[in-house]
Simulated assay, not measured.
Amino acid sequence: MASILMQKSQQADQYEKERLEHTPWVEKYRPKNLDDVAAQDHAVKVLKKTIESANLPHMLFYGPPGTGKTSTILALSKQLYGPNLYKSRVLELNASDERGISIVRQKIKNFARLTVSNPTKDDLENYPCPPYKIIILDEADSMTNDAQSALRRTIENYSSVTRFCLICNYITRIIDPLASRCSKFRFKSLNNDNALNRLKYIAEEEHINLNRNEPVLEEVLKISGGDLRKAITFLQSATKLNNSLKGAQDLEDEDVQMLGEEGETNADGTITISSVREIAGVISDSVINEIAEVIKAKDHKRIITEINEIILQGWSAQQVLDQLHDKFILDDQINSLAKNGIAKTLFTVDKRLNNGTDEHVQLLDLCLQVAKIL
């Protein structure tokens, strides 16, 4: 009997190990409790106090993507209920998928009115288990105004047995009557120290072979722009690419060297800044500098040639736009009047790209308009 139990335990451990191997790192390293949440000190301190009293208000989390809003409420819920009660006490919905008034009247209302399940003795000993459920509405700013108005009444009617947590990027899109019923928590973009420590921890856990002569993780954070989720995804993608190239036994030495020169990996199998930039779709500085010089020279034929080359290589027009913005707006040699004109042109082209216009035409128009301003 003991041997059978041991065998089952080993099989369960093996299954869990395989499951984690195939889990995206964003989910694998999602904070398990509030202490693991990086950078959001104010929100974490307040929420820890609410856990002690077990009297949670309705909450509204807002801030940029990838700053830990969903992770924080999930970690809080697990600390409140534990693994057994969590499934029956917490309802997580993505309001961008189910954003109409019908979802409020049906799924949310039905869950909110349910009586609270009784915790076991073990649950009560290890977790606070307060007598209410939690409904998490992710991307609540995409809900229609009618749905938000209906939600307001649901929050009022069932507040004795249900707490709501609304998560959004833009608080201005939440109607005032709904926002005033919630305790607001602003999540700011992660600073480099907190995010860097998290990336270092992941790199150690996954045994990532980083180039020690380059600030690779700092470059990952710079490219991701304070979005830790994006940074972790870039790091995982770069690692997978590196491992696949390292494991290709049939590559000749010269082929491996060629890949290193193109910026995808080093011949010694380490992840470099250039490999991270390649994964993230960031255009090399030499290419951007060349486009900028051609624009300043007002050479229309070379401008057309350069843009044709950019399109043929498959670079994103939005990425070209972002990097040209930094190149021109941060250039001290260009006067303020010219910068204003360039900025206006960049904004106009950005709007057109977001509306789905042709990338090739818009890039050509951008370069010619900027050349005219300079």
Rank of each mutant, 00 (worst) to 15 (best):
307 I>S: 07
343 A>S: 15
62 Y>R: 03
351 K>H: 13
27 E>Y: 13
277 R>W: 00
342 I>S: 06
57 P>S: 12
200 K>Y: 05
123 D>N: 09
251 L>Y: 00
35 D>Q: 13
17 K>S: 10
321 L>E: 00
69 K>E: 08
199 L>G: 04
363 L>Y: 04
319 Q>I: 15
160 S>Q: 13
305 T>F: 13
259 L>P: 00
302 R>F: 06
215 P>C: 09
284 S>A: 09
66 G>Y: 07
138 D>L: 06
155 I>P: 00
290 E>Q: 11
306 E>C: 08
275 S>F: 10
311 I>S: 05
152 R>S: 06
345 T>F: 04
5 L>N: 13
2 A>C: 08
64 P>D: 06
197 N>G: 11
173 R>M: 06
8 K>W: 08
373 I>L: 14
110 N>F: 11
341 G>V: 02
197 N>A: 14
214 E>C: 04
37 V>T: 04
337 L>D: 14
362 Q>W: 08
23 T>S: 08
83 P>R: 05
30 R>S: 06
100 G>N: 03
70 T>E: 09
41 D>T: 14
328 F>W: 01
97 D>C: 01
124 L>N: 09
41 D>V: 12
288 I>E: 01
353 L>D: 03
225 G>H: 06
318 Q>W: 05
8 K>L: 14
269 G>H: 03
22 H>L: 14
240 K>V: 15
258 M>T: 13
311 I>P: 02
228 L>A: 07
87 K>T: 12
143 M>Y: 03
219 E>N: 11
180 S>Y: 00
302 R>M: 13
344 K>N: 10
178 L>K: 07
61 F>L: 11
355 N>D: 14
255 D>F: 14
83 P>F: 01
202 I>K: 03
67 T>Y: 10
60 L>P: 03
40 Q>M: 02
234 F>M: 11
155 I>D: 02
243 N>L: 14
173 R>L: 09
307 I>E: 06
198 R>G: 03
353 L>R: 03
88 S>E: 15
107 K>R: 06
343 A>D: 13
82 G>W: 07
318 Q>V: 14
79 Q>V: 09
291 I>D: 08
23 T>E: 11
339 K>T: 02
364 L>Y: 07
332 D>S: 10
341 G>P: 04
233 T>I: 11
2 A>R: 12
368 L>E: 04
199 L>R: 04
198 R>S: 05
358 D>I: 10
351 K>Y: 15
25 W>L: 00
93 L>M: 15
268 D>V: 02
90 V>W: 12
372 K>S: 15
163 R>T: 12
31 P>R: 01
98 E>L: 00
208 I>C: 05
363 L>G: 00
320 V>E: 05
352 R>S: 13
168 C>D: 01
252 E>M: 08
124 L>Q: 11
292 A>W: 01
369 Q>W: 12
325 H>D: 10
183 S>P: 05
73 I>K: 06
54 A>K: 04
343 A>C: 14
339 K>S: 01
263 G>V: 12
60 L>K: 01
309 E>N: 15
